[in-house]
Computed example of a mutant assay.
Amino acid sequence: MKKAPGSLLTPIPILLALLTGTAAYADEVSPRSESLPTAPYLLPGAPTFDMSIAQFREKYNTANPDLPLSEYRAIDSRLDKSPLTRAASKISETLYASTALEPGTGKIKTLQITWLPIPGPDEKAAQEKAQAYMTALMRFFSPTRSVEDSRKRLNELLSKGKGARYYAQTEGALRFVVADNGDKGLTFAVEPIKLSLTEP
C-alpha cells in the first residue's frame, strides 16, 4: 500500500478516530454520554476475514463495477497504540472506505464506509451514494441477499443506530456496526466474529 496523498490528509483525524474508536456489543445502543468499551476488532485474538485488502478490493470491484473502490492507502498511525495497520480509500470528497489490518498477515479486521455529510444541494445525492456503497459492502458478505433486501436491512440498521455513537448487531458470523456522529459523519462497518458452540 502506498502512503496517503495530501488530498487524503484532511479527513485522516476523522478516519483515525473512527478506526481506533470503540463499539457497542451486539444489539446495544451506546448513548453519547456513556463511555464505550473497546471495539471488538481491537481486542487480542479478534478474528479476521480470510483475505487481504487487495484480495477484497479485487473481488469487490468485480462484483460492483458501478461502485468501485480505489487502492487503499496506509494512514500514518504512529500516535495510535494499536499494532493494527490502518488504510483508507477515497471514494469522493465526502465518502471514504477504511480498514484495519492484522499485523504480519495483512488480513482484514474491519471494513468501514464513512460518509461525511456536507449541507447543501448535493447532500441527498451524496447520502444516496454512501448508502449504495454501504449496501454493496453488506451484499459482498451476504451474497444471497438481493439488492432490495440488503437496502432494507441497511436502512433498519441505520434507523436503529440513528443518533447512537455506536450500534452493533450480529448476524451469523458477521457484526454490522453503525456509528452515527451526526454532522461529523456516519460509519457503517462489517466485521467478522468468532462463532462458538453452545453446550447443552
Rank of each mutant, 00 (worst) to 15 (best):
I113Y: 04
A17D: 08
S30Q: 13
T187Q: 06
E71C: 08
P11K: 11
M134T: 02
R165N: 07
Y41N: 02
T187A: 08
A164G: 15
L195M: 10
M134R: 03
D183M: 06
G21R: 15
E148P: 00
S159A: 04
L197G: 07
T170E: 11
P119C: 03
Y166D: 00
E128W: 04
T10S: 03
G161E: 02
K59T: 13
T48M: 03
T85Y: 02
L186D: 02
E199M: 05
L195W: 03
Q131H: 13
L154D: 01
R139I: 07
L195C: 00
L9H: 15
G21N: 12
T187F: 03
A17L: 07
L137D: 08
L101V: 15
P103T: 14
Q127D: 01
L69D: 10
A74R: 15
R145D: 10
E93D: 12
S77D: 11
A168P: 00
P44Y: 10
R153H: 10
P47S: 07
E199C: 02
T10D: 00
L174N: 09
P121Y: 06
S146P: 02
S30K: 09
G163W: 01
K90N: 04
S7W: 01
G163E: 00
L116R: 14
A87V: 09
M138P: 09
N64E: 06
N64G: 01
Y166R: 04
L67D: 13
R145L: 11
A136H: 05
T105W: 08
S70R: 15
E199D: 02
A17F: 10
S30H: 11
D180E: 12
P37K: 15
L67A: 14
K3Y: 07
M1P: 09
G185T: 14
A179S: 15
P40T: 10
K152C: 04
T187W: 09
L174R: 12
L84A: 12
L186W: 08
L84G: 01
Q169A: 14
L154M: 04
L67S: 11
L95C: 09
P37A: 13
E93C: 05
L16T: 14
A17G: 12
D122S: 06
K90Y: 08
A97S: 05
L116D: 10
S52T: 15
Y41H: 15
T110N: 08
G6M: 09
K160C: 01
K3R: 13
T22S: 07
